[in-house]
Nucleic acid binder design. Structure first.
Lengths: 243, 243
DNA sequence: CAGTGGTCTAGACCACATC
DNA sequence: ATGTGGTCTAGACCACTGG
């Protein structure tokens, strides 16, 4: 029975929140099946229909994937063939789907500047791990990424460990450090290439680049990654769907 | 009762499709209320719960807005205070919400080139109406838009008629021509400013601009607008939410 | 007050996957 | 055959809006 006001919150959303807490706590790991609807209904003492609405809300947020006949699975970055491009918006102009190769340039440690600290909800000076990497399409350099992570969440992240891993960056974070990237906010600008970036991206200094700044969130909207990509948009573009 | 296979389609989705057809045909106009769930249930001979799922699907696609206690309303671009920024992604860097002023430069007629014709599913040479306009934030020119429309759908569109209208462009299209913009696909690049655009946007020639190319769709995913915006991103950016 | 959409339940049945 | 999620129904009740 739902809590009768004030500030009414339906029962199914209360259960959504409980399930989200369990996901955050790691009660079921990414890729694993959650308990069936009937079992969850017993656990929370509600009808199967109410559990269904609760789980549907999780599925709508991509926290969970439902498979008819099989069960409900915790979403993962590891095997997502369908939504492989959910966090990768750069496409070829000719429309062909190409998944870029990632080449790691370096991994270093820094102290957070004031602005990055604010975006990651850290204190200025808190330790960061900074990765720099290239994304190459058909062997050509297209994106230069700088990725800042709170060192506290990514203990033991080294260059060789990244290079030993085969799969996407977010799959790496998820399996190796238990940090799940759920959503992100991006801000785009057009800026002139500085000398160093120009050299790496093989363009003239001052040439227009697409700058993509991203803050990535995990459960509870906690920010866990700051990223800036510089993209040479000669033969590629940033694709966005407005619903 | 749902059609029993093959290629199974649930009853509520069949009804969603019927409602969508009615919306397309203009059975209820934007801003108007649709019939109540109970009435729709009678009309289609299904339960209220099934109608509810059908309408929920429309609401998820932003075709319709549900208001508890009042009814279900056909979505409109005219009064959307909440989702005013659904099709306008340019924001101020300082985070303040500002709705830009629109200044119309000219309205002209052209014949469609091969590429625009393909994007708008027209034949090359079909007549187009082309609007050019500026978006100004706090009096400063920020975006230079070029908007191409199939002349067949926008008969009688003139400069003075646009200028006489108060409201957004899509509100204008909706109320004056019955063309409803529902979703869009955008491609972004960073390009150097050409001489003419540079002058209008008050930047140096060659300065990086954010180029935003948009194809906008109406019911049935029919393309009805092609648009290219050039954005000076000194104090503004393109904001995107990755779900 | 009556009418709307929103929640919750219980039960029947369907589609799909696996054994 | 069994278990999963997905659909559909019918009915009761709740929250909100407006006259």
């Amino acid at each position: 029975m739902p809590t009768s006001s004030p500030s009414f919150r339906p029962l199914y959303l209360q259960i959504t929140r409980l399930l989200e807490k369990s996901l955050d706590a790691g009660e079921w790991r990414p890729g694993e099946a959650m308990p069936s609807e009937i079992e969850l209904a017993r656990r929370y003492g509600v009808s199967q229909g109410t559990v269904r609405k609760a789980v549907a809300a999780l599925a709508a947020d991509n926290l969970v994937v439902r498979r008819q006949g099989k069960g409900t699975y915790v979403a993962t970055h590891t095997e997502e063939r369908t939504s492989m491009f959910r966090f990768l918006r750069i496409r070829r102009d000719d429309g062909r789907d190409e998944y870029p190769a990632s080449r790691l340039l370096d991994v270093r440690r820094f102290k957070a500047t004031a602005d990055v600290a604010r975006l990651l909800e850290l204190k200025p000076g808190d330790p960061l791990v900074i990765l720099r990497r290239m994304l190459e399409y058909s062997g050509d350099p297209v994106v230069l990424d700088e990725i800042a992570l709170p060192a506290a969440l990514f203990k033991g992240l080294t260059k060789s460990r990244v290079e030993a891993y085969h799969g996407s960056m977010y799959s790496f974070f998820e399996t190796q450090f238990g940090v799940r990237m759920l959503k992100a906010q991006e801000k785009l600008k057009a800026i002139p290439a500085d000398a160093a970036s120009a050299r790496i991206l093989n363009v003239a200094p001052g040439h227009p680049l697409l700058a993509v700044e991203r803050v990535t969130l995990t459960y509870g909207d906690r920010p866990v990654e700051w990223r800036r990509g510089l993209c040479a948009t000669h033969h590629h573009h940033y694709l966005n769907q407005l619903g």
